Computed example of a mutant assay.
Amino acid sequence: MNREGKNKSLVKSLQDTIEGWKKQQAFMQSELHAAQLELDKLVSSETSIAEASQSYLKSFFQKRGLYLIEALLVVAAVVLLSRLSYAGMSKYLPGFRRRHRSFRVRLIELIHRLLTVLLIVLGPTTVFYLVEDWVLFSLSILLLIGILWTLRQALPRYWHQIQLFLNIGSVREGERVVFQGLPWNVQQINLFCTLVNPVANLKQRVPINDLVDMRSRPSEKSEPWFPCRQDDWVILNDGTRGKVTGISPEMVQLVQRGGAILTYQTSDFLANSPQNLSPSFRLKETLGISYALQKESTSTIPDILHQYILKRIEQEGYAEQLVNLRVEFALANNSSLDLVVMADFKGELGDLYNRLRRAIQRWCVDACSENGWEIPFPQMTLSGSLVKPGQ
Rank of each mutant, 00 (worst) to 15 (best):
L110E: 08
Q54M: 04
H100F: 09
A330H: 10
R257D: 11
I360D: 02
C368R: 06
F192S: 10
Q275G: 01
R241Q: 14
L93M: 14
V244G: 13
R326A: 13
G146Q: 02
S383A: 04
I309K: 09
V206R: 09
P376K: 09
G350H: 07
D210E: 14
L84S: 04
S297I: 08
P183I: 08
F165C: 00
C193E: 11
V177Q: 13
G123C: 06
F137E: 15
S45M: 13
A34M: 09
F61K: 10
W159A: 07
R97Q: 12
V127K: 03
L66T: 11
R97E: 11
P378R: 09
A200T: 06
N324R: 03
H112S: 05
S13I: 04
P389Q: 06
L305T: 05
L283T: 08
P183N: 14
C364S: 15
A76G: 12
Y92M: 05
I49N: 00
Q361H: 12
L42F: 03
T298V: 14
R101F: 00
A332Q: 10
F179G: 12
L202Y: 06
R241C: 14
K203W: 01
W373Q: 02
D338W: 01
Q180F: 05
D338I: 03
C228K: 13
P207C: 00
L122M: 10
